[in-house]
Design a protein around this nucleic acid. Structure first.
Length: 737
DNA sequence: AAAAAAG
């Protein structure tokens, strides 16, 4: 009955069908699930005891993992602290810090010259043989690590930690070293923090509750979440870093650029991180209680305020390190300030091989963007790197090119083997992003005879497994399927010596962190880690503490929202006008990306636009992968001008020429705002972002924009307003009419 | 709320 009403209500049956043609897809998926369970009688009923053997089987593995997961969870809470020490220590070869710098599989840089020569024609041929051989060699595989993990939980670490902290060792890792470390520094640090901490902290507290009422002013800053930014915004509109006491230490840095500065501090901290990181985290509201265990001891902690700094705060770094970091930073800032300076060094000068440089040129990157100029060299040196570059600034090439070069150097002189285990891994939060990264990295890799493969869910694994069997050098994918294949024994990560986490801060969020941690533990001990994101913040401390060693931290100075090419506006509307206004905004010439908060709403909006005669497609997790890929491709190719998506498209996705981003629903986090709006205005182009909000959301919106350090006018809008015409770029027509 | 695994 109700159905009959709907069609009548202006939802033409026609639209319904086509649209549903799609939906069925996902519904089918669900059906499959049901079907499976249905085939097994009593699946639903808890009393499934004797029944399906299958289930039982599944159960077993799960339990096993549960134990590990638990370990992972603990670690994520800070218990792992010692991961660095205990966890790795015993079994793993682990990287000795001494070596580290050199660490990259450097030994064979020289050989690099050879590569070009090698043609990998053979490859295909061998494939047939391989199957047989497959994984025999690897049996050893990653399991070695695991055992350790188990240990950790029990780990006597705490003791260790204590020691470390006391020692104040800057180095994350090993206690042995630390002891020596100067105690002098430490004290100093502690002093610093306290000061700073109090300022920040309050903020955090606020956030959670997020009550804006009480503290009108502060809200803005406290902004919850992240660290520095929020704080800055309020106090320093301009972003002067008055707040941060800590920074005082580093006179060197020019604060002008400072805005981003947060990273500056960090580098230094990095050294210390292990110890400190844990303290801070707790601070974060978001996270699980984690870590209170340690804290008691931590001086900082009690002050509590410091939280944020985690790695950053870590105050102490040896003078040497500090200087080094600062130096690096200065260089970076200088480059950023003067584009010409950056371009002085070409990709070749940065250490990339001839073939790679050529491909980059083909990809449109003839000379390095600032973030690329900054990270290529350190990555080639084998350092762990944290990098923040705003959306559309070229981060993929920034890690992709040097990653290929490193893999190449490491493998120079080695014979390619069938079923060879991959040597590099790139993790992304969404399948579309993984695909996109591959489209950039693959050509670079192929130019030097290396192979990449995508490993993500939503598609049959057969092909992926087949590729792995033939042997690939670089795996690019999403956490779920990768972990799945690892568990199945079809993906061996033990030879992975370089790991990239794109959208790293996002990968450290609730549902992602643990899988990511487990995956990283399967990679080679001491593997190099590269964390990239436009909104890299201390949220990644969970990974930094356990997996990175004295990471180099980069960001491009002067790269702030004001210097961007995106125009932001906020339209305050009446809820009942929303649909009409949206149609009006989307009915335009250029490509428009619309963000909705839920899958259902995204689907509904796409339908509405279609009904209004504006061809639009949706992109969200309720669509099957084929549909997702197809719809995104339709937008990319220009066959449709409107794409309505959930936040699945918020990060990383690059579609040329999107000149308008409409947020049908305002995001809750400033980071989400930055990523969504970053879908336009890429690589220096201009773009416009319009966010629709109901009147009562005004205040929240103001605060969020402050956190994002974005200035945007708030304007009331109603259907038919010229304002809408202008935003849609139809103003002339309108005027005429 | 969304995303990420299901031969």
């Amino acid at each position: 009955m109700p159905k009959s009403k709907k069609p009548a209500g202006g939802r033409p049956a026609k639209n319904f069908e086509p649209r549903y043609g799609d939906k069925p897809a996902y519904q089918d998926r669900k059906r499959h699930g049901d079907g499976a369970s249905a085939s097994k009688p009593g699946s639903k009923s808890p009393s499934h005891r004797g029944y399906r053997a299958a289930e039982t089987t599944e159960a077993a593995p799960k339990r096993r993992w549960t134990a590990q997961e638990r370990a992972g969870r603990d670690e994520s809470r800070g218990i792992r602290t010692q991961a660095g020490g205990t966890g790795r220590g015993d079994d793993r070869p682990r990287r000795s810090f001494d070596d580290r710098p050199p660490r990259s599989y450097d030994d064979r840089p020289a050989r690099s010259s050879e590569r070009p020569v090698r043609s990998y024609d053979d490859r295909p041929a061998r494939s047939s043989d391989r199957p047989a051989r497959s994984f025999e060699g690897r049996p050893a595989r990653s399991f070695d690590d695991r055992p350790r993990r188990d240990d950790r939980p029990m780990r006597t670490d705490r003791v260790d930690r204590t020691e470390r902290r006391t020692t104040g060792d800057a180095r994350p890792s090993y206690r042995d070293d630390r002891p020596r470390r100067s105690f002098d520094d430490r004290p100093a640090r502690s002093t610093e923090r306290p000061a700073r901490s109090f300022g920040d902290r309050p903020a955090r507290d606020d956030r959670p509750a997020r009550s804006f009422d009480d503290r009108p002013r502060r809200d803005a800053r406290p902004a919850r979440s992240f660290d520095e930014r929020p704080a800055r915004s309020t106090e320093r509109p301009a972003r002067s870093f008055g707040d941060r006491p800590a920074r005082d230490d580093r006179p060197a840095r020019s604060f002008d650029d400072g805005p981003r500065r947060s990273f500056d501090e960090r580098p230094a901290r990095s050294a210390e991180r292990p110890a400190r990181s844990f303290g801070d985290r707790p601070a974060r509201d978001d996270r699980p209680a984690r870590s209170f265990d340690d804290r008691p001891r931590r001086d900082d902690r009690r002050s509590e305020g410091p939280g944020r700094s985690d790695w950053s705060s870590a105050p102490k770094r040896s003078a040497q390190q500090e200087q080094h970091v600062d130096v690096v930073h200065e260089r970076l800032q200088a480059d950023a300030v003067d584009a010409a300076t950056v371009t002085e060094l070409g990709f070749a000068e940065l250490g990339l091989g001839e073939n790679i440089v050529r491909v980059l040129a083909d990809l449109g990157a003839s000379s390095p963007f600032p973030i690329q100029a900054a990270t290529v060299a350190p990555i080639l040196q084998g350092r762990d790197v944290l990098a923040r570059g705003r959306t559309g600034s070229g981060k993929t090439i920034a890690f992709g090119a040097p990653l290929v070069e490193s893999v190449l150097r490491a493998g120079a002189g080695t014979k390619r083997a069938f079923a060879r285990a991959p040597r590099a891994l790139i993790l992304a939060p969404t399948r579309e992003l993984a695909l996109q990264i591959d489209s950039t990295v693959q050509p670079i890799a192929r130019s030097v005879g290396l192979f990449t493969t995508q490993i993500y869910g939503g598609v049959p694994q057969g092909r992926q497994v087949g590729a792995l069997r033939k042997g690939v050098d670089i795996v690019i994918g999403t956490p779920g399927r990768i972990e799945d294949l690892v568990e199945q024994g079809k993906l061996d990560l033990s030879e992975v010596k370089i790991v990239v986490l794109d959208e790293a801060d996002h990968m450290c969020e609730l549902g992602f962190l643990e899988p990511v941690q487990r995956i990283l533990r399967h990679t080679a001990a001491g593997s190099q880690k590269l964390l990239f994101s436009a909104t890299l913040d201390r949220e990644v401390a969970a990974l930094v503490d356990e997996f990175l060693v004295e990471p180099a931290v980069y960001e491009v100075a002067g790269e702030d929202q004001e210097s961007g090419t995106i125009e932001h506006r906020v339209l305050v509307i009446d809820h009942r006008d929303k649909a009409e206004i949206l149609v009006s905004l989307v009915d335009r010439a250029g490509k428009t990306l619309v963000f909705a908060r839920t899958r259902a709403y995204a689907e509904m909006l796409a339908e509405q636009f279609d009904d209004a005669g504006i061809s639009a497609v949706a992109l969200h997790g309720d669509l099957n992968q084929a549909k997702r890929t197809r719809n995104l491709e339709k937008m990319t190719s220009g066959r449709v001008a409107v794409l309505v998506a959930t936040d699945v498209a918020a990060r990383g996705i690059h579609v040329d020429d999107i000149d308008l981003v409409v947020q049908a629903d305002a995001p809750d986090e400033y980071k989400t705002y930055l990523h969504r709006s970053g879908r336009t205005g890429r690589a220096g182009r201009t773009g416009r972002v319009v966010t629709l909000i109901p009147r009562q959301r005004r205040r929240r919106m103001v605060e969020m924009l402050e956190r994002a350090e974005i200035d945007a006018p708030f304007e009331d809008a109603r259907p038919g307003d010229d304002l809408l015409e202008e935003i849609a770029g139809r103003q002339i027509a309108n005027v005429t009419g």
